[in-house]
Design a binder for these strands. Structure first.
Lengths: 364, 364
DNA sequence: AATATTAGTAAAATGAATTTACTAATTAGA
DNA sequence: TCTAATTAGTAAATTCATTTTACTAATATT
């Protein structure tokens, strides 16, 4: 419940212009004025600032009938960088990303039996490694994507599956002890949803869901153009949607949780295609029941399928679309398109750039 | 994606101050400065304006240790009015409400076999009736609460149950043809959730759910202090959460929808208490399964039970609390309190005032 | 070539919020 | 009981992001 004063409004407007150029590029100053509601003079001023800071560049012009041609603007590649990390179940990915979501200097190391201390050390080493390879002047922040559950507001990794000795790790604080860059931590599902919003097929959509399936089932929701930050554990909780009240009891206390029916085996990606298709077919029947609950609640116009299941993204999307069409009265206004993500299994990494774009200012 | 300019920020800040005084009263200027982040001088200016407009009044003062006493502020009763309507399945309620949520001039007429035209006429008559009884200078807007489904953004009632001849009625436009007041239309569940937020037990909470059960099952969600406006049909869709994938097919296309198991009979309120208790006991078992899905997704700190079920609110809350405790691993941070609403069956009416407070400016 | 139209900019004006320097009212302690 | 310290609130001057007004730039139509 914070109020608006002049410096905050200024900051918001500049960020808004950056985002709109990113999502609508190529776009002209006049079009930006229309989208934002700001006067064309204000847009001129803001854009000049951004060009001077080398965040935005002019890129040709086109006339659409009478009158002076529009001068098109777009975000400049390689102008600024974020340091990105993705903490998965068994691996730590590190990389740099520019404002356009391009990934550079990608490296990964394996994780096993980590403790709070060992994981922190590996993370700090990874950051150091990326920092060395990028012009330090251009680094705007650090984005950490991590499997849940975590408390992103406080920057704490709570108790991720497979990390039996990691508990309540205040990773953001630990990074900030060593580095002055702003740091953001978000779970991989939310980050992947934002990846889709900033850089993917969701750029022009305001309501969609990213459904990530690897060993667990999770989802990130974009609602009214913004990440829905409902809850600390949100993204993981879709797996605990009850789809069979008379079903087996789950470790969460509930009965008939989706995760008990729809989860894929850990070695899924290494199986033969034929075998995967059979498993997928069965899984999607159940998955659809849970997904419909989400669709009913959030009314998305699209669902993007990702994480490890991206290897069979096309097939999964097809199977789910069919199941859902059979269980859902789609009117013209209410049609949900189910598609694989364009980032294949890299969504959480592109997501690390996206959470930085979402949280940090892209200019000095 | 609209930007912030000075007049918009000004408007937002004034509304914010009104809301904060409402929700935290009695509150001092300094405390408001702290909550909003605005300087104390700005708060002085805004409050002076509001006092001059008779929306706010000073109400005594208390010292808390050293220093000058705080001057407490609160919203003035009867200073401005909203015209409120509640379109239920079989009745149309009309009334006036002040900024504090007090209801005046309540009347109701019965509805039966209404068409677009007949319903519009009855609504306009009802508005006229209330308008006659209130100082016209003090009327700030019209709030219409209606059973769903409806499109509140466009102000259209789509196809409410029991109203077989009402379809796509642009009620807001119809009212605005005759009246110059701003008009807002919202479904009864969302409005009831806002009632709780502005005037009820949810005033100090930022995440809670209003669960309304009458003939159907619906919910309104307050998330991060704001009404979650997810979707046109949202509030009604909780009833179509699948709790049994192998269950009966529902009219919505899905199988095993909550509504098929947990709905109460139409004559529920007229039954004997003993009978109601037996029905409720069974219903709550299923209701809990659907409610847990909502709780998992939205992580509320409280659930308020209302609508017709408010007659047995205490009992329902108790039964649901027990069911949920057994199906949900509540940690210290994650505890959900289930309680009856303080407005008994009047939530949608108080909600009509709340949606006005949420949408309109309370000052000229 | 003149006119209408759209894109973009320079310089002056606006006005909400802040800053600075005050007044008002209270307690604690010398 | 007088003084210093502390908290609440206000008056007048200042700040600065945005807008307004009046322009220039570049294009198509007649």
């Amino acid at each position: 419940m914070k109020a608006q004063n002049q410096p905050i409004a200024k900051e918001n407007n500049r960020r808004l212009v950056v985002k709109l150029i990113l999502m609508h590029s190529p776009i002209s100053r006049m079009e930006l004025a229309g989208l934002t509601g700001l006067s064309k003079m204000t847009i001129t001023n803001i854009v000049s600032e951004l060009i001077k800071n080398e965040i935005v560049e002019e890129t040709g012009s086109t006339g659409s009938g009478v009158g002076r041609k529009k001068i098109y603007l777009k975000i400049k590649q390689n102008s600024r960088f974020f340091i990105g990390l993705y903490i998965a179940r068994k691996q730590l990915f590190s990389f740099a990303a520019d404002l356009c979501g391009n990934i550079f200097c990608e490296k990964h190391i394996s994780l096993c039996n980590e403790t709070n201390d060992s994981l922190t050390r590996k993370v700090l080493d990874a950051v150091e490694n990326v920092e060395k390879r990028v012009d330090v002047q251009k680094i705007m922040g650090i984005g950490v994507t991590c499997i849940g559950p975590l408390d992103s507001e406080k920057g704490i990794i709570l108790s991720p599956p497979d990390f039996y000795d990691v508990h309540d790790l205040p990773l953001v604080k630990e990074i900030q002890k060593r580095y002055a860059y702003p740091v953001v931590l978000r779970n991989d599902m939310d980050a992947s949803a934002l990846a889709e919003k900033y850089y993917g097929a969701g750029r022009t959509l305001n309501n969609f869901i990213y459904l990530g399936i690897s060993d667990g089932i999770g989802a990130g929701v974009i609602s009214n153009g913004l990440l829905y930050k409902g809850n600390k554990g949100f993204s993981g909780e879709i797996g605990h949607t009850c789809i069979d009240i008379n079903g087996r009891r789950c470790s969460c206390g509930n009965t008939g949780c989706l995760e008990l029916y729809a989860a894929l085996p850990a070695d899924y990606v290494s199986l033969e295609y034929k075998e995967r298709a059979l498993l997928l077919d069965k899984s999607c029947k159940y998955l659809a029941a849970g997904l419909i609950t989400l669709i009913n609640l959030f009314d998305p116009s699209a669902v993007f399928i990702g994480h490890k299941l991206a290897v069979d993204g096309e097939l999964a999307a097809e199977l789910l679309q069919k199941e859902i069409n059979g269980r859902y009265l789609a009117s013209e206004q209410r049609r949900v398109e189910i598609k694989p993500t364009v980032f294949s299994e890299k969504s959480p990494m592109v997501g690390a750039a996206a959470i930085c774009m979402d949280e940090f200012r892209a200019y000095p």
